[in-house]
């Protein structure tokens, strides 16, 4: 054996290996080739066994050639491997193609009811002005629902609140959230900024714009010097927050428990003030009633009307919700047809 012939063997081996690697078409074949050429019992090892018959000075040279050839085969294996993997991956990617236009897997989500949602929206707006939420009983007494609000038992204004009575003497289903004014004043001291949402009841036949159960939000603010100008400023903010930049209008109203009393109108949200059936051609929509708390009411609340003054307001939640969502019929709210509720998504 001499260096030349051994080197020739090695190069022939390499040529053979490279040719076979190039032909290999799957990772298993490549692995087989690796063992065949580079393994412990592989071709390269077999050739190198003849190294012992060489003169010592030639041995390092053969070693160098063998290393070179080993490296070349390794690189060829790696390159071919990479080629095969990327081809396989490309194939898989093609095979894995889906119709991305198919609809997704539905994630169930319910919807919030517009009444509590509207109450939350109102509370959020007034909350920014420091109004805190209270709640009062729905089964009220005549005293708090009427008499302490300056509505004597035979007051003609009682016609404004047709009442449902219950089988507990002196009790009734509250006809408005206004008795909450009394309860708040009796339980806390000025400065008062209170919001009272809740369910109310009236003896009223049901139609598209009336119901015997409905929701109101009452507001109350009492302090030294709280004036009608404060009320007007606040209600303007409220109307703008709910309905955007629209004209508003303050005009005289009537409630026994406020003096002066106010009706608060906003420019019709349907026609923008031109006049349409929704606003009875007036261009205005009344969204709430308000006024300066009557001195009698302050006194029932334990507050000195000479020192303090304040305002109260009350609004129908359904009315606000109707305007926000264009709901055509009040009965939708308590009927709970899912075809209505599921639109609030």
């Amino acid at each position: 054996m001499d260096f030349e012939s051994l080197s020739g063997d090695l190069h022939r081996l390499m040529d053979l290996a490279l040719a076979e690697i190039a032909k290999a078409d799957d990772p298993a074949a490549l692995e087989q080739l690796q063992i065949q050429y580079l393994g412990k019992k592989g071709g390269l090892t077999a050739v190198l066994r003849g190294i012992g018959g060489l003169p010592p000075e030639d041995r390092p040279r053969v070693g160098a050639v063998a290393n070179e050839i080993g490296e070349a085969v390794k690189i060829a294996l790696a390159e071919r491997g990479a080629q095969l993997r990327s081809a396989a991956q490309a194939q898989r990617l093609v095979a894995e193609k889906v119709d991305v236009t198919l609809p997704g897997r539905t994630v169930r989500r319910g919807t919030l009811h517009p009444i509590p949602e509207t109450i939350a929206a109102i509370a959020e707006i007034f909350g920014q002005f420091g109004f805190v939420v209270y709640e009062g009983p729905e089964v009220e007494d005549d005293l708090t629902n009427f008499q302490m609000l300056n509505i004597a038992p035979d007051h003609p204004a009682r016609d404004l609140w047709d009442t449902l009575y219950v089988d507990i003497p002196g009790r009734l289903l509250r006809t408005h959230t206004s008795p909450g004014q009394i309860r708040v004043m009796q339980s806390t001291r000025p400065p008062i900024r209170a919001l009272l949402p809740g369910r109310c009841f009236r003896y009223e036949a049901v139609d598209a714009s009336h119901g015997f159960e409905f929701f109101q939000v009452e507001g109350l603010m009492v302090d030294e010097g709280t004036s009608m100008a404060d009320l007007k400023g606040l209600l303007d903010e409220f109307a703008h927050a709910l309905f955007g930049p629209r004209k508003t209008r303050f005009r005289p109203g009537y409630y026994p428990f406020t003096e002066p009393s106010v009706a608060f109108d906003v420019e019709c949200v349907v026609c923008g003030g031109v006049g349409c059936p929704a606003c009875s051609k007036t261009g205005w929509m009344t969204i709430l009633g308000a006024g300066m708390v009557h001195p009698v009411v302050l006194q029932y609340g334990g507050i000195d009307p000479e020192r303090y003054q304040g305002f109260a307001f009350g609004m129908g939640v359904e009315r606000i919700a109707n305007l926000r969502h264009a709901v055509p019929d009040l009965r939708y709210y308590l009927e709970n047809d899912l075809r209505f509720l599921e639109q609030f998504r």
Binding site: F129, D223, G225, M228, A229, D230, L234
Partner: peptide, 11 residues
Amino acid sequence: TPAHLPDTLMP
């Protein structure tokens, strides 16, 4: 009636 936001004490 003028309109302005309350500038009195907060509860």
